[in-house]
Design a protein around this nucleic acid. Structure first.
Length: 376
RNA sequence: GGGGGGAUACCAGAGUGGCCAAAUGGGACAGACUGUAAAUCUGUUGUCUUACGACUUCGGAGGUUCGAAUCCUCCUCCCCCCA
């Protein structure tokens, strides 16, 4: 994998660049649609590529390990072939499930014992076997196993948790460096910087991760209940330490506003379920603001979903029609909204790149933050 | 013509003397969602009020009772069976 910075913004810490992988190039800053169980819910690959312009998508180790399972994935020749996605894939390690499935797991020094949310069966994830599983999945970018504490975690717990995440990270790096890809193309391994909302912990975590000299780094444990301002502060603290010539991936973030603020602070990669999940639940993100498509006010609005939208659904369908689909619980509504939202997210990062390249990012961002967070 | 059943909030439908401004479901309206156990979840849905609370409601009119959606009388309308 190779990363090349092409532009840096004079006023902010924003930058744009190009990340090269075995499955193609990724222009940064980039947003990566989430495809947890080998599908970006409700969206065809054709549309992800042609309409949305997705350059890389996510998969999830925990979910794919449970279903379809490693045997199927290995026989298929990896996740790319299994799902017919020939562009890059990044897999999360299951670290987030340590957080979101907290009632069904037990943490030890060794790793994390999960109870499957599907059938209740018990499984052990370790920093090592999570690397092995991601080798089988065949993701271009694989993530370290970490503990993602809630945004409300107190200092004592945060410090203890970070210690575990750091020991796990070292074990994960070791296993990665000792093993080989399975399908004839290279993979890379990203550490995850934790430390909750505590600057000293974040600093220590970033220094520890940077010392491992990897090809890219992730910032985890943010947007998990803490105020947005604290999230932005933590990004600043961490990005001051992470090497400038390596991509930084802010995990699980976020709203369009979050993306813009994080790009301004030097983040290069994002993923989030919001465009798809909130889309399925009737929320549309646009450059003019946020719409709840179930609202009565759209019932007779026959104008296009989004005049400025970049996907075919934006001008094909009207707001009134989309509202009807949501109110009638028709699945086409969820598909249209997912496609639109992903299209908007990818447009937003493309536009951010263009503005950075032109040196006009700062002013554009100030204006755009107001627009995208408005309720319409 | 004879016999029987019924009328409850936007709809359907419980409730059959006080714990009823009235269950439940649907609908309607609004909100939440950040490395996806989510095509999910939450709230509101008589009027006024930030709230406490107050007021008016169970086809209509009258009555019994300390108290009525609930009991009695009459009226209106609907449904079923027999002829």
């Amino acid at each position: 994998m190779n990363f090349e910075l092409t532009h840096t913004d004079p006023e902010t810490s924003a930058r744009c660049g190009c990340l090269s992988t075995a499955h193609g190039e990724i222009q940064t800053p980039i947003f990566m649609p989430v495809g947890t169980v080998a599908t970006v819910k409700g969206v065809f690959h054709r549309d992800l590529k042609q309409e949305v312009g997705a350059e890389i998508i996510l998969g999830n180790t925990y979910h794919l390990y449970l279903r379809p399972g490693l045997e199927v994935l290995e026989q298929a020749g990896g996740l790319h072939k299994f799902s017919s996605w020939d562009r890059p894939i990044l897999t999360d390690s299951g670290g987030y499930q340590v957080f979101s499935l907290a009632d069904n797991r037990k943490l030890t020094e060794e790793g994390c014992v999960f109870q499957s949310h599907i059938d209740g069966s018990r499984h052990l994830f370790t920093p090592e076997n999570v690397v092995d599983i991601q080798r089988v999945i065949g993701a271009d970018i694989i993530m370290a196993l970490d503990e993602c504490p809630p945004g409300t975690a107190e200092y004592g717990y945060a410090k203890k948790s970070l210690g575990l995440t750091q020991r796990w990270l070292e074990r994960g790096v070791k296993r990665f460096d000792e093993t080989q890809p399975k399908y004839g193309y290279g993979q890379t391994f990203f550490p995850i910087v934790q430390g909750c909302v505590y600057p000293d912990l974040r600093r220590a975590a970033a220094e520890h991760a940077a010392a491992l000299h990897r090809e890219g780094y992730a910032i985890g444990g943010l947007a998990v209940g803490e105020p947005a301002e604290q999230m932005y502060q933590m990004i600043e603290v961490v990005n001051a330490i992470l090497p400038k010539d390596r991509p930084r991936y802010l995990m699980g973030v976020g709203t369009p506003e979050n993306l813009l603020e994080a790009i301004a602070r030097g983040v290069d990669m994002f993923d989030c379920v919001m465009p798809t999940r909130n889309g399925r639940n009737g929320m549309l993100f646009t450059a003019q603001g946020i719409m709840n498509m179930r609202n009565q006010k759209w019932a007779r609005d026959f104008s296009p979903i989004d005049e400025n939208g970049t996907t075919f659904v934006d001008k094909t369908y009207s707001k009134a029609y989309l509202r009807h689909l949501f109110v009638s619980d028709e699945m086409l509504g969820a598909q249209i909204a997912s496609l639109h939202n992903l299209g908007f997210y990818l447009w937003l990062v493309r536009e951010a790149r263009a503005q950075i390249a032109q040196g006009t990012f700062a002013a554009w961002k100030r204006d755009m933050v107001k627009k995208v967070s408005a309720r319409i």
